[in-house]
């Protein structure tokens, strides 16, 4: 339970973590936000992230991994620069979510949880992302695209290919 002497995080994130652990009645409540911020900065939850987060909170690395493995939005391997999350949960499924997923697989040449060789894109099939009213929907990093058709999907991909997309890292 300490602030490490050397940190793998940027000064801003490190400062944010210093504050986070003081916000809750128990320190370990800061675990999930910390992991999410760490993922945004590092790109995934690396062993080094696990180690430092455990140390900052004062829990074991095993504790961190227990939680980390529970949540599907936390990943332990690098994703592409643009992580495409296609919802196939019920509303999206009814309105063509699987077609969008298939389409993405074709276009990118990768499957679920895979990354393109150039590291630009990664693809994920996810559960409801809370955009049911505008199904089918996807999320690219933190940006939403909805009421998609294969054609609209192509346009989105094109945008990112030309480098317009917002990166999380």
């Amino acid at each position: 339970m300490s602030t490490p002497a050397t940190t793998i995080f940027s000064p801003e994130t490190a400062a944010r973590f210093d504050r986070l652990v003081t916000l809750y009645p128990v320190r370990r409540s800061a675990l999930i936000p910390m992991l999410l911020y760490a993922q945004d900065e590092v790109g995934y939850i690396s062993d080094e992230v696990v180690k430092e987060v455990a140390q900052r909170i004062g829990i074991t690395e095993l504790d961190v991994r227990n939680v980390l493995s529970y949540y599907s939005m936390l990943r332990t391997k690098p994703a592409g620069k643009y992580n495409i999350q296609v919802c196939t949960n019920i509303s999206c499924m009814l309105r063509g979510g699987y077609e969008i997923l298939e389409h993405c697989k074709q276009r990118l040449g990768i499957g679920h949880k895979e990354v393109t060789p150039d590291g630009q894109f990664s693809l994920e099939e996810v559960e409801c992302i809370g955009a049911c009213c505008w199904a089918p929907a996807i999320q690219v990093n933190y940006d939403f695209y909805d009421e998609l058709t294969p054609e609209k999907m192509d346009a989105v991909l094109e945008e990112y290919k030309t480098g317009r997309g917002k990166e999380t890292r």
């Binding site: 095993l62 991994r65 227990n66 493995s69 529970y70």
Partner: peptide, 20 residues
């Protein structure tokens, strides 16, 4: 000792040791 934990969830949930 806290050497055992539980990882993943639902049908994939599994007991895991601290050294991975």
């Amino acid at each position: 000792v806290w050497a055992l934990g539980i990882q993943n969830r639902g049908v994939s949930a599994v007991i895991a040791p601290n050294g991975q």
